[in-house]
Design a protein around this nucleic acid. Sequence first.
DNA 1: CTGAAAGCGCTAACAA
DNA 2: TTGTTAGCGCTTTCAG
Lengths: 344, 344
Amino acid sequence: MKKKLLISDIAKQLNISITTVSFILNGKAKEKRISDSLTARVLKLVEEVNYKPNQLAQSLRTGKTKTIGLMVEDISNTFFANIARLIEEKAYKAGYKIIYCSTEDDTAKTRDLISMFRDKHVDGYIITPPPGVEEDIKELIAEGLPVVLLDRTLPGLPTNFVGVDNRMGSYSATEHLIGQGYKKIALVTTESGQSQMLQRLEGYEQAMAHHQLAPKLLKIPFRVTTEDMIPKIMAFLDDLRQRDDLDAVLFATNYLALRGLEAIDKLELRVPADVGVVGFDDHDIFRLYKPSVTAVAQPTEAIADQVINMMLDQLDTDDRKQATTTQTAVLPTSLIVRNSTTRR
Amino acid sequence: MKKKLLISDIAKQLNISITTVSFILNGKAKEKRISDSLTARVLKLVEEVNYKPNQLAQSLRTGKTKTIGLMVEDISNTFFANIARLIEEKAYKAGYKIIYCSTEDDTAKTRDLISMFRDKHVDGYIITPPPGVEEDIKELIAEGLPVVLLDRTLPGLPTNFVGVDNRMGSYSATEHLIGQGYKKIALVTTESGQSQMLQRLEGYEQAMAHHQLAPKLLKIPFRVTTEDMIPKIMAFLDDLRQRDDLDAVLFATNYLALRGLEAIDKLELRVPADVGVVGFDDHDIFRLYKPSVTAVAQPTEAIADQVINMMLDQLDTDDRKQATTTQTAVLPTSLIVRNSTTRR
DNA sequence: CTGAAAGCGCTAACAA
DNA sequence: TTGTTAGCGCTTTCAG
């Protein structure tokens, strides 16, 4: 078990002071006018013996951990998993590590996590907020900590935010269905008051209204388990079907669409002949499924870019309580037309 | 921005020494025979003002971070995502946090990650090792750090390990196919020398040999991109098909099965009539796909349990270089029979 | 250019 | 039972 190297070890070996080594290691050699040759010798030795400063000590001293906390609704959802992967990659390039967690859209859990991140002294917070965490986030901001909200905003809380134009996304999805000759279009969404879900609802309603079509809604409570979702969707669709009032469905999230496809399958409805299907958020399965499923795709790469840029921006602007200006990025979605909405 | 509370603040407020507070907070009140009433008062104040010890300082002092590093091959693969989620949950209950990372089965990246974890001073390592990291892992063990390998072992490296009986898993999957009347059974696997893949190959070969059937293999190089995989699989299957030498395929991982299904689809083969299909590692899609896909399922919950238990075990046994005894858990898989292998 | 020294906040041996 | 105090390893001010 080889002894851990200390900065003092390397100072000693070179017969110079710890200070000098520290300056050089922190890129202040020029600033402190340390000779190039000394600088080179130090760097060389550090390299050779593979000295690594103790990050804990560093962080304790500087108050910076070079770590960003990322809390998404559900890391096992491909949409969030992709965003997380991209953010991590980009953060890494800027010298930051990412710690992730899933909120499961649970207020209590999220507050716990925020508190855990604070304990860990993360330098910045990227959050997909569940309802009810407004106060906690306000507090973070009040303490001058960088915060970027992702995917959804919190009502009455001006914050740095990155998301997509959800209203437009579902509006154009609905328009697309109508363009394909579908008229009896239902929307299956969640009951939550999350901003992005409300916008998706709004877009659908506007498109329907625009064509004088009657909206048909199913709102699934958030806490419903995967298994319970399917019968609920089946009952809803079957009921409409009985009344001959259904020929297409827009699902407001990818997991709703997944459950929805199972429901449709069990009802033995044919897609796209009996019902057209569109999902919000693309998913691998949609490409594979038969028929392949039309989806409103979010630009994950662009989202990740914006998020990390906003974060690094704030991190750079250092202390300065720049909480005054908040940035917002609303990105466009794109409709990926596949076979589930193509009637011939 | 409220001032961060220090242990000295709370000592001062109660007119007692820092030591006393520290002892109480660390559960040493009894041991140090501090009066119950004082203990209660301290705990009460701590609760009231919501004092939280600075973890960085704590860790710097004690050398423990209460953090476990978890490196899986690919966190976006449902198999690993599930395991990770379960491990995190169980670790959390024991007071440990988890930091995850994906190795992407890349040796260099993994070594980087191990080194990053060391920088972060994680207390233990749970690793799905790619080839070529034997030395790094040996070093960890040599330094007395707890290590548990997951999913696959490293040749010539006795370590704590949790995995499944891969040989038996593919053996029984192959037997199942044979039982269903399939005879011209192919195996699509990766080229890697990973222990678990070799075992899956072995099980298949043994079952085929047992029935005097000729094995037919496709080994896909690991670095092949998703897109390139499909044509490779298509070519392989089509070739066998031409020679009338194919009626079933066993895919050695869930992502191979996914690509394989796409390939089979493009070849316009019918499942299970033209070809029977079995995947190794279950996947949500397999339930949803039409027809639903038979799979060899790993007991994720049990795996996570074993992993975390072994880890906590080592963490508890404290310093003691208990590197002498290594534990191994090999769990059974189960075959989930679905429609992709049921010929009528 | 370089060194001494003061902490960052907490734990725990040693005293009292 | 409780207080004093010496660090954990590093950064950074201040003085040469």
